[in-house]
Amino acid sequence: MAEPESAPLEKLLGQISGQWTMYILWILDTNGTMRFGELRRKVDGISPKVLSQRLRMLEESGIVHRSYESTIPPQVSYELTGRGKELSKPLYDLCNLASRWYGNERNT
């Protein structure tokens, strides 16, 4: 039995949805390769545990690449893979849409 046409979209949305995930992708896309601590500071409010979980999930999906250097202390950095970079245009389109929808709102 063939998969429904929506199956690939469902799979992709399952990989990039979830609290913080799209924002992590946005930060990596706009900043390039980042170490864990830098990324954590940019994603204000995320716990180290959740950031690790999201990065691990994105790595398993082939969207993020993790580099490990066995220095003292060890250095771990993250960057988008070629597959992850394919999300750049949709992310920028969402950013532009958010600016149109919410750009004039003020936080009170």
Results as ranks from 00 to 15, higher is better:
89 K>L: 14
59 E>A: 15
64 V>E: 04
13 L>I: 09
18 G>W: 00
34 M>Q: 07
23 Y>P: 02
15 Q>I: 03
13 L>K: 06
61 S>A: 15
19 Q>R: 08
61 S>F: 06
5 E>S: 11
49 K>Y: 11
70 S>P: 14
19 Q>T: 07
80 L>P: 01
86 E>I: 14
73 P>R: 01
47 S>W: 09
104 N>Q: 10
36 F>L: 08
75 Q>Y: 05
79 E>R: 07
69 E>A: 10
16 I>E: 02
46 I>W: 06
104 N>A: 11
75 Q>R: 09
66 R>N: 05
94 L>K: 02
30 T>D: 12
68 Y>R: 13
106 R>C: 05
56 R>S: 15
2 A>S: 12
74 P>C: 07
74 P>N: 12
38 E>L: 00
9 L>C: 07
73 P>C: 02
9 L>Q: 07
107 N>S: 12
10 E>K: 10
89 K>A: 13
77 S>D: 03
92 Y>H: 15
44 D>C: 10
83 R>D: 05
65 H>G: 05
96 N>K: 12
6 S>P: 14
60 E>K: 12
72 I>V: 15
94 L>P: 03
22 M>A: 09
45 G>K: 02
24 I>Q: 00
14 G>L: 04
96 N>R: 12
45 G>Q: 02
49 K>C: 12
71 T>G: 09
63 I>A: 03
55 L>R: 00
73 P>I: 02
108 T>R: 07
97 L>I: 07
76 V>L: 09
33 T>E: 14
23 Y>T: 08
54 R>H: 02
60 E>P: 03
83 R>K: 08
29 D>S: 15
33 T>F: 11
58 L>C: 04
41 R>H: 06
81 T>F: 00
3 E>V: 10
105 E>Y: 07
80 L>I: 01
102 Y>D: 10
79 E>F: 01
75 Q>F: 08
82 G>T: 11
38 E>Q: 06
90 P>H: 06
99 S>Q: 12
10 E>S: 13
41 R>W: 06
98 A>H: 09
89 K>Q: 12
95 C>R: 11
82 G>A: 07
107 N>Y: 13
89 K>V: 09
103 G>V: 07
39 L>A: 01
16 I>V: 06
48 P>Q: 06
46 I>D: 04
28 L>K: 02
25 L>E: 00
91 L>P: 13
26 W>T: 10
70 S>N: 14
8 P>W: 04
87 L>W: 01
20 W>M: 00
45 G>A: 01
75 Q>L: 11
54 R>E: 04
31 N>Y: 08
24 I>V: 10
61 S>E: 15
100 R>F: 11
17 S>V: 01
28 L>M: 03
32 G>T: 00
